[in-house]
């Protein structure tokens, strides 16, 4: 199971890091929750996210908007992922915690640690047996976002 989930994490990160954003929503179940928030918001129980999507279709809409509507300078991410910490839950889903670091490289070569934090995931198998995210909360350690958050974390 560890290998399956590590592969899911790596595949999702690869879609974001290589610019194949269209592939990224495919790692989620149709009925899902994806949220980017911060440790402070998470601890206080604030519901809002920097990104808040409660369906796979909303993730597809975000990818569509990033491709066709929104303006941002050319940039790429590099996700460095920690070892998934796995815990079975009573309802058959699997709770996973995985640390991440995202390094952002801009058009002119400027690099920065854009985000570091932990994914709080719930994963389960889809009807074809593939592991997918039912829930992914990206909890960033810092509440500070440099310039803008375009590509999802």
């Amino acid at each position: 199971m560890l290998m399956n989930i590590a592969t899911l994490n790596a595949s999702s990160a690869k879609a974001l890091d290589t610019g194949n954003l269209h592939d990224w929503p495919g790692f989620f179940l149709d009925d899902c929750l994806y949220k980017v928030t911060t440790a402070d918001n998470h601890e206080k129980g604030y519901g809002a996210g920097l990104i808040y999507a409660d369906s796979k279709a909303m993730l597809e809409d975000r990818v569509l908007a990033l491709r066709q509507a929104n303006i941002y300078e050319r940039q790429r991410y590099r996700h460095i992922l920690g070892l998934p910490l796995i815990q079975a839950t009573p309802d058959g889903a699997v709770a996973v915690e995985t640390s991440f670091v995202v390094v952002r490289t801009m058009r002119d070569g400027q690099m920065m640690v854009f985000a570091a934090g932990v994914y709080l995931d719930r994963v389960r198998r889809d009807i074809d047996g593939a592991w997918r995210y039912a829930e992914r909360i990206a909890v960033c350690d810092s509440q500070r976002i440099d310039t803008l958050l375009a590509i999802p974390i």
Binding site: T37, T38, D40, N41, Y46, G47, A48, G49, L50, Q143, R144, I145, D146, T147, L148
Partner: peptide, 11 residues
């Protein structure tokens, strides 16, 4: 009621 707080650093 506060439902979220974020800081955006603008260049």
């Amino acid at each position: 009621e506060v439902i979220g707080r974020f800081t955006q650093q603008l260049p």
